[in-house]
């Protein structure tokens, strides 16, 4: 039932926001997944590498603990490897150029009414929506 999905969505959202609150109030940093990972892989933020690595470890490991509690979890990812590679490249380049993604600009930026956070969110949602129209409804590839 879809309404139950909304409740789990909201509850999960609160956990995401609490994660962001801990990272801000304790570590003094904005919880943005692309920035935390990007600063590591491009070597630009290695002075804070341990808290970044620990954050990423927590993000990967929490679902490992929760996974057995669920009967089936399907991520429904496409089997088209070319689409996955192009999508990954676009997400990597785009989030670093924009200095943020759904967590940094969306959750952390919009919650402090940052104009850049709001603008980024509007543009990535519009681009995502148009991508779905083009590649799903017009071309039928995803």
């Amino acid at each position: 039932m879809i309404e139950q999905d909304w409740i789990w969505g909201f509850a999960g959202g609160v956990l995401i926001g609490l994660g962001g609150a801990v990272y801000l109030l304790v570590n003094g940093r904005i919880m943005g997944a692309s920035g935390i990972l990007g600063g590591l892989v491009d070597g630009s933020e290695l002075s804070t590498k341990w808290e970044r690595l620990a954050f990423i470890a927590g993000t990967i490991l929490a679902p490992v603990v929760l996974y057995p509690l669920y009967r089936e979890v399907d991520t429904h990812i496409t089997g088209n490897v070319a689409v996955v590679i192009v999508a990954g490249l676009l997400v990597g380049i785009g989030t670093r150029l924009a200095n943020g993604c759904t967590s940094g600009h969306g959750v952390c930026g919009m919650s402090r009414l940052s104009l850049r956070g709001i603008a980024a969110t509007v543009f990535y949602i519009l681009a995502g929506g148009m991508t779905i129209v083009l590649f799903r409804h017009v071309l039928g590839v995803i």
Partner: peptide, 25 residues
Amino acid sequence: NLIVGSVLFGAGWGLAGLCPGPSLA
């Protein structure tokens, strides 16, 4: 940069349905 980057990111997000956080989780 914010606009160009967000448009590129949004296109990739729509194509695969994944953004950086969930791709790690």
